[in-house]
Amino acid sequence: MTQATAAAAGPLAHAAAGRPARKKSTYPYYFLLLPALIYFIFFILPTLTSFYYSFTRWDLFTAEWIGLDNYRTFFQEQALLTGLKNTLIYAVITSGLKVVLGLGLAMLLTSKIIAKGYLRSVIFFPVLVSSIGIGLTFTILMNPERGLINSTLGTIGIGGPGWLTDPNLALYSVAIVDIWKGVGLATVIFIAGLVSIPGEYYEAAALDGANKWQTFRNIMLPLSRPAMASVITLSFIGGLRSFDLIWAMTKGGPGFASDVLASVIYKQYQAGFYGLSTAGNVVLFLLVTIIMVPLTRWLNRAQEA
């Protein structure tokens, strides 16, 4: 630096050095106060309250501390354990098939086919319909004697099963309806992931002589991982927390064959066992957390790899 430059910069540098450091403004954080208060009132506080009441025998007016008795009863009741097992089976089946079918439909609906926009609307439409409405409709369609499904099978000489009355089929029948209802959302998410892949990748693959399977395995599948992670996360959480469709179609029956954890909790609440049902809610909350936290981390690592 020349003497003239140093002389010119000297006063400015001296002024900057003598100026007090600007304090970081807290003003932007004020906008977080209202959301934080709402989150505390409607999520943190009810969660902590639920944890407390799960250790009590309570009604609407009194609460008696009983320690871990509710949890002991929960894991000793056969119906509750059946509901826990069915919850895991239901979540795995529905989320797995939504991923597979959603990806397949997304590939079809991003290819060069006729009426592509219309078909996308048709596939997504069940997502917009109430689960209760769909459940009541399929209860009629799956009626073993007068339902349209068995009547159609009967015209071709096939005796239809008791979709919702057979203990071995009831849970899987509801899962099929859940998949039909929810696959549209998975398809839309996968479509968004597929159309975001730059066309240069496909052009390079075509120049290298890659066939359709190689293009899918090496381009479409790896680059759609963010969409796949979203579908797996949403579908699995929805499967673990499923209640309305199962309740509308079977109410957990026949017997306890299609009971999931949420329906068992609701039945306990209806029977007046409020402490036991609260303990079941805590178990469901912990189950979702224990499964989804490591699964989400694994999906994020696989996505970054």
Results as ranks from 00 to 15, higher is better:
residue 127 V to D: 03
residue 79 A to S: 06
residue 130 S to M: 07
residue 40 F to Q: 12
residue 64 E to M: 13
residue 33 L to K: 10
residue 18 G to Q: 08
residue 105 L to Q: 01
residue 34 L to F: 13
residue 77 E to H: 06
residue 112 K to C: 07
residue 121 S to A: 13
residue 131 S to R: 13
residue 91 A to Q: 02
residue 82 T to N: 08
residue 54 S to N: 03
residue 46 P to F: 15
residue 72 R to Y: 05
residue 90 Y to Q: 02
residue 88 L to P: 01
residue 53 Y to G: 01
residue 59 D to H: 06
residue 67 G to N: 08
residue 51 F to P: 14
residue 108 L to H: 01
residue 126 P to N: 07
residue 50 S to L: 15
residue 39 Y to T: 04
residue 131 S to K: 09
residue 79 A to F: 03
residue 37 L to Q: 12
residue 48 L to Y: 09
residue 110 T to V: 03
residue 21 A to S: 08
residue 44 I to Y: 14
residue 67 G to C: 01
residue 33 L to S: 12
residue 80 L to D: 11
residue 97 L to T: 07
residue 40 F to V: 08
residue 108 L to R: 05
residue 36 A to K: 05
residue 31 F to L: 09
residue 86 N to L: 02
residue 113 I to L: 12
residue 84 L to Y: 00
residue 123 I to K: 00
residue 94 T to I: 05
residue 90 Y to I: 02
residue 44 I to P: 07
residue 49 T to S: 13
residue 58 W to D: 01
residue 41 I to V: 15
residue 96 G to E: 10
residue 70 N to K: 00
residue 99 V to K: 01
residue 25 S to C: 05
residue 83 G to H: 04
residue 62 T to C: 14
residue 24 K to V: 15
residue 119 L to E: 03
residue 103 L to D: 00
residue 19 R to V: 12
residue 101 L to W: 04
residue 38 I to T: 11
residue 85 K to D: 14
residue 46 P to V: 13
residue 108 L to I: 09
residue 82 T to I: 04
residue 22 R to S: 07
residue 95 S to N: 00
residue 73 T to M: 14
residue 94 T to M: 03
residue 105 L to K: 03
residue 39 Y to H: 12
residue 111 S to C: 10
residue 102 G to W: 02
residue 67 G to W: 07
residue 95 S to I: 04
residue 61 F to R: 14
residue 68 L to Y: 12
residue 98 K to P: 02
residue 82 T to H: 14
residue 91 A to H: 00
residue 61 F to H: 09
residue 43 F to Y: 09
residue 127 V to H: 11
residue 20 P to S: 09
residue 23 K to A: 07
residue 110 T to G: 02
residue 93 I to C: 10
residue 107 M to S: 15
